[in-house]
Design a protein around this nucleic acid. Structure first.
Lengths: 176, 176
DNA sequence: AGGCTGGCTAGTGGAAACCATAGCCAGAAC
DNA sequence: GTTCTGGCTATGGTTTCCACTAGCCAGCCT
């Protein structure tokens, strides 16, 4: 009667195994230390993410970006300015013949490296089962794109039994 | 004189190549169709994302989740309720001996499948170069985790020259 | 019976995100 | 010059996010 659901479902343990100084969860906290939080400070808004999407699709010019994301020009201007300041985009002058100089927004290396995040989000969004939608496929073979979790040595980390260990960066700073 | 920056930097073309009916960008729009937008409706807030992080670290109980994310209990309660309603988490009763029945939050399959998104965000967050931070490593070999963009047939898609084609889902619905 | 504790809920308030509308400015076109 | 256009900026409003404080309720402990 207690824990009726106990053995019925496979015990969904933590995906990330904690070892070493991280084993005792009462003695550390990820808040403020987490790289996810750092990332979200830059691209944590819907407008930032869908502007990046539009840039991956090849959008460059201001009014086109605003129109195709459905954002108002005010929001688009503010967010683009922030993305440039944060180094994801570069504002670059261009000039069509017989036109005045204008500016376009192009991805920097940092911006281009966000691609796996977008792909991962798309892949997960597909799981939600809403119909319609746009899907990315590999240009070479035509089959859909996704992301795979791997370690630096190339070992693929399977999802159901993903295990990991936490480390700080090299400089031995103490945990908060 | 025109396009002074033209050949200087490698032309940062669209990461995603558009072909077929998508080639003419004026004739379609991703707005409302994009799976990224669908995904962001569920996990587009900072609180949702860091609660998921805490669940991956093994957090389960309400006050622990609230405390370790740094969220207020009010926000944590609201967001957890939403995550349960959206199917990322499951609210499950448990009872420690001599205590009353309580509820814990555990990841569902849908929630567990979000893991690549978190890893991708962490990987990108590392690029931001803030010092400190928590990093995930492969439990087996100890080297850091990341994500790799791959197609369903297993071809790895290199970042600098990622190419893709857009498709609708099978049912041939027309584009907006 | 009264207190304590875990797990919330309610009220308030500030800040940020977003939308809508309107206006501004530089410079090519006329 | 005047107009037109692309690329913004400004103003005002609604909604959402989040923090802070306070309180509630179930049920175990005494």
């Amino acid at each position: 009667m207690t824990q009726p659901a106990g053995p019925a479902e496979p015990d969904t343990d933590a995906v990330i195994a904690l070892t070493g100084r991280f084993a005792d969860r009462d003695r550390w906290q990820a808040e403020g230390w987490c790289r996810i939080e750092h990332a979200l400070e830059l691209i944590g808004t819907r407008s930032a993410m869908i502007l990046m999407r539009e840039l991956y699709y090849g959008g460059r010019r201001f009014d086109e970006l605003a129109r195709r994301t459905g954002l108002t020009e005010a929001v688009a201007a503010k967010r683009l300015k922030q993305l440039v300041a944060d180094g994801l985009l570069q504002r670059r002058p261009y000039q069509e013949p017989g036109k005045r100089t204008r500016y376009e927004y192009v991805l920097t290396d940092l911006g281009r490296e966000l691609f796996p995040v977008l792909v991962a989000l798309m892949q997960w969004g597909e799981r939600l089962g809403r119909d319609g939608g746009v899907e990315l496929v590999h240009a070479g073979c035509g089959s859909p794109l996704g992301v795979v979790v791997k370690c630096a040595k190339g070992h693929e980390v399977a999802l159901p039994d993903t295990a990991a260990r936490l480390v700080t960066d090299g400089n031995g700073t103490d945990l908060p």
